[in-house]
Nucleic acid binder design. Structure first.
Lengths: 243, 243
DNA sequence: CAGATTTTATTTGTCTGACATTTAAAAGTC
DNA sequence: GACTTTTAAATGTCAGACAAATAAAATCTG
């Protein structure tokens, strides 16, 4: 099951891959205990530090968890949404910040995804979701609000919209896109005059969701996308020639 | 910049987090060299194995790469799509296989996402994308095709559709969903009589994309979703009572 | 005998020190 | 000046040890 070729390159990576394969293929099931580090080092004919490096690689991906003590060891972890979320956010943030992805591309993907949720959300949103959206809209209209707080509220609003679809996979995928775009979004809100326009669109979305009118939600989101991308472009322009 | 609280729990995890924060925040930029392992162990007041475990955690997330030799060391890695892809696929597969997500939920998310791509793809698809889709449809209609090959072709078809949107973020997110659903999709194709119906829908989609008719693509995808979910339900039913 | 306490064994977490291997730069040679 | 050799620095790996946590077994006590 877990053999290892004798090419002497990156032993810990090879071992990690072997165990990872065993988990993904189902040979190791959730909550199953892996052999102890000593046993693994015997099995793979390597030292314990090498085994430990392999296990830490897997732990970094939330594939295993470890426990100390007599009945301790490494156990196959049941991957949960929270872990998947944070990984997704880290990855998305880096993809964007390292310029592997342009803001425009990310923005397009984000709104395409959000619009995909709109129809489902119009169908399934609960009063709770609506209440959250109304609360956030009210918060956004407060005069003394900092840009950062406005942005946080903006994210919460869209989050409620997406969560209204009742599909955790969609929520999870959107979380990555939104969180990654957060820094630039923050910069956008500095152009303060934009707030009332955004609030108006948010209100339109909330009203349409309350009326379960998917088409209007979609149209409002399309407007918001156009607006956001225009603002981002303006900000980018200003940053290019700050003088 | 990189300090470490003295609570003696999971030192390597703490160090990994400190370095990860530095990368995400931009304090460490792409291709920048980290201090050597010895220097890091001095900095954090821990041993070299502990530092190494921390670095391996980061390497598992493709945040750093290491190089041996005199001018070697650990460097901040420019995250690319391939790495992000494989991580996304691993995560999605596990979320589904460990029952954190139902097939129905994944399927809904997958088609919502794919339908979100439809409009963009109708607008931007190149002749190349169309050719790929036609080729795959032809392959699917070959009588001797194994279920596995049919499924692979099916994935390639949808991949071409999504790639037609020209947005790598969308391609990347959909890849996870599709790959994760692959095993069950394979099982679905065992109900052989379904092939011609699927091929008919594929043809309809390809025709509509050629005509740049987003609405028809959307409708065909909606049909395909309904069909897929029905088949999945049947398969699940059969597995419950195999006798 | 039942329950609480202590002991013990197992396992991960960490440290020290060493050697092997790779690699680029410095030193030496023609 | 171009080529070769040496050297130093860095990661990769190993061995052995101790610390700390923890559950099970053994012991003690009423």
């Amino acid at each position: 099951m877990k053999i290892d070729p004798q090419n002497p390159a990156d032993l810990s990576a090879q071992i990690a891959q072997a165990i990872r394969d065993a988990i993904v293929s189902g040979a190791l099931i959730v909550d199953e205990r892996l052999p102890s580090e000593t046993e693994l080092s015997d099995l793979f004919r390597v030292s314990r530090p090498t085994v430990r490096e392999a296990l830490k690689r897997l732990a970094a991906q939330s594939l295993i968890r470890t426990q100390r003590g007599a009945a301790g060891g490494a156990f196959v972890n049941r991957l949960n949404f929270e872990d998947a979320y944070s990984q997704q956010i880290t990855t998305s943030t880096l993809l964007l910040s390292m310029n592997a992805v342009s803001f425009d591309t990310a923005c397009e993907a984000r709104y395409a995804l959000e619009r995909a949720c709109a129809a489902l959300s119009a169908d399934r949103r609960t009063p709770d979701h609506l209440a959250t959206m109304r609360t956030e809209i009210f918060r956004q209209s407060q005069p003394g609000l900092t840009d950062e707080a406005f942005c946080t509220s903006d994210v919460a609003f869209h989050r409620a919209l997406v969560d209204g679809a009742g599909n955790p996979v969609l929520s999870y995928q959107l979380a990555g896109a939104v969180e990654a775009m957060q820094p630039l979004m923050n910069m956008i809100t500095f152009t303060a005059r934009s707030r009332e326009a955004i609030i108006a669109m948010h209100s339109k979305i909330a009203d349409a969701l309350e009326a379960r009118d998917a088409d209007v939600v979609d149209a409002a989101l399309a407007d918001l996308e156009t607006y956001t991308r225009q603002l981002a472009q303006d900000v980018a322009e200003q940053r290019r020639k700050p003088a």
